[in-house]
Write a protein that binds this DNA or RNA. Structure first.
Lengths: 157, 157
DNA sequence: TTCCGTGCAAATGATTTGCAGGACT
DNA sequence: AGTCCTGCAAATCATTTGCACGGAA
């Protein structure tokens, strides 16, 4: 919470990104810096379109660069791609955050992050039963949040 | 396995589809019947493209009708849509099949279906903790199957 | 200076839709 | 007969790419 912490995180974050770029002989441009700063400040889920709106309106970073940079950030392990529902990708800040899964309200779209060690253990067990080495997983729970439950019959007419 | 069983399943399946259509004042056309028959015989995962290839080549059902019918089959509860990986949808036969989750090999793409009651119970518990009413879920485990483990270092160069 | 990056617009690929003639009930 | 359907081609939507110029190293 202290300003100092955030600033340190930022340093470490940016260093990480710069090293990643160097390792691939890529340049640390103003656009990449600006986009990295934006994602650093938006830990919630967002889409490419969100970035387009934020940056294209100021005539600052083009759509093409946004998509190209998002791919880099995913490759660098800074973001993860999620396919929640519709025909577009959702991104989530991952750098230095521990793994979690999602609980999604089908009515309002609200997303809650949760972590459950017991479930993870059972997943390992299942993988073993089938002779798999588990590398990663995705768990999404879809339901109705407490607010939407109260709104009565929530289905479309 | 007995012929009789399959035939009975088919009757029940088709009746179900016809009733669904009637309920929405939709017609049971030859195209819809042909597509329903195809999915009934393809319980594995498939894509819209698979159907296009199967039917367009014989100049029998158009792409537009395939997409429109897939939506109907999902609405009827006969198919479920999955977003496994890339930029297209995968469909899976659901009618009269019990729920299951997936274990996917990242090397060869093999998909194993599994069911784990303990995990499902814990999911209910998690949803409750956050005040959600659970409606459905998706659990995907990604890993290496036993065959691919033996092939040595399986990463791309 | 030398690549690499960027912006633009055009290309792509999956899926959707408008329209006019055809097929169920 | 009256709807609902289908096929076609054109339209969308998110995302990708080719190309010529501009900017980091």
């Amino acid at each position: 919470m202290k300003k100092q912490d955030t600033s340190e995180q930022w340093e470490s974050f940016m260093q990480n990104f710069i090293l990643f770029l160097k390792g691939k002989d890529l340049k640390f441009t103003n656009q990449r810096k600006a986009l990295a700063l934006w994602v650093f400040n938006h830990h919630e889920h967002f889409t490419a379109e969100d970035l387009v709106i934020a940056f294209q309106s100021e005539r600052w970073v083009s759509k093409a660069t946004i998509y190209r940079t998002l791919s880099l950030l995913v490759e660098a392990g800074i973001l993860v791609e999620e396919n929640f529902n519709e025909g577009y990708k959702t991104y989530e800040f991952k750098f230095n955050r521990k793994h979690h899964d999602h609980l999604i309200c089908q009515e309002c779209g609200k997303v809650i992050e949760f972590e459950n060690k017991e479930i993870e253990k059972l997943q390992e067990k299942v993988a073993l039963e089938y002779g798999y080495i588990l590398q990663s997983h995705t768990l999404k729970l879809f339901g109705l949040c407490s607010v939407c439950q109260r709104k009565g019959r929530p289905r479309r007419p």
